[in-house]
């Protein structure tokens, strides 16, 4: 191409951009945008402190409700308070991480409606990354903190015969859970390509999901447990691995080894959510709405 403006250096950087892995590029763009939002947030410090506290408090309420329940009963669905706290803390920490990383995807419908999604499509970064990093809200650390505190309390009080495998299960469970919830966020966002006003459906699976997982599976009807095991694999966030750690039987009678599946389930669910996202974006680009 006859080109008198671009220099040899530019040509080299064009070559360079070909072999860069898309994953790395995406993470880099995510980091860049997140840094901008964090600085924006810090221009309103008082507001940030207030909302971070609110984020912490509102999640703490759920646990206070559980504490109040246990002031009336010793067991809930056959589980003691430390055991429920273990489930609660694990679900809360996983969800908090996913919410921090991907929670902003629930604004996709709004962006489509006001037309600002288009401005993201003309930038050299994956749209999903830009949507996820949009309005990155550090206040969501409040939720993670609260989840980890409850998890800490649970680990200190729950009666578990610890083995190295069980110890390793804890970080594996939290991280895989966060990835599963992230995939839920992405799938929910993809759904908003079709129904722009339906952010609440996403909430049912994200906020609703974490509320569900805070309680023992024995509390719920078998069909519901089957649904969140085989259809939307939320049970792999904390129930199945945590039941293994606590030496408890799964109400569906699944074998022990399913407790080790969360990383695989997370990967598979990510692939499904990614496909849904791609289909949604393709639909948007062909219909413009």
């Amino acid at each position: 191409m006859a080109d008198d403006v671009r220099t040899a250096g530019d040509a080299a950087s064009v070559e360079e951009e070909r072999w860069r892995s898309p994953l790395w590029e995406g993470l880099r763009a995510y980091g860049l945008i997140v840094a901008m939002w964090m600085r924006s947030t810090m221009t309103y410090r008082a507001s940030f402190a207030m909302t971070a506290f609110g984020n912490f408090a509102v999640t703490a309420f759920d646990f206070i409700a559980i504490l109040m329940m246990f002031s009336h009963v010793d067991r809930l669905g056959g589980y003691s308070l430390p055991e429920v706290a273990f489930l609660y803390g694990a679900a809360g920490a996983s969800f908090g991480l996913a919410d921090l990383a991907m929670g902003s995807t629930d604004r996709l419908g709004r962006r489509i409606r006001d037309g600002t999604l288009d401005t993201l499509l003309v930038r050299p970064a994956p749209v999903l990354v830009q949507v996820a990093a949009d309005r990155f809200a550090l206040r969501r650390l409040g939720r993670i903190t609260q989840g980890l505190l409850v998890l800490g309390y649970a680990l200190a009080t729950v009666d578990i015969a610890w083995t190295p495998v069980k110890v390793a299960m804890i970080p594996m469970m939290i991280l895989s859970g966060a990835v599963i919830f992230s995939a839920v966020f992405v799938a929910g966002a993809a759904f908003q390509f079709w129904a722009q006003d339906a952010a609440e459906v996403q909430n049912s699976f994200t906020y609703g999901g974490t509320t569900l997982l805070q309680y023992p599976p024995t509390v719920f009807a078998k069909d519901l447990v089957r649904g969140v095991t085989f259809v939307v694999p939320l049970a792999f966030v904390n129930w199945l691995p945590a039941l293994y750690v606590m030496d408890r039987d799964d109400p569906l009678g699944l074998p022990d080894w399913v407790a080790f599946l969360p990383p695989l389930v997370a990967a598979g669910f990510c692939a499904v959510a990614g496909l849904a996202w791609r289909a949604g974006l393709r639909g948007y680009r062909s219909t413009g709405s």
């Binding site: 288009d118 680009r285 062909s286």
Partner: peptide, 9 residues
Amino acid sequence: IKMLTGILT
């Protein structure tokens, strides 16, 4: 313009 910029197909 949206087609030219890759927003719409």
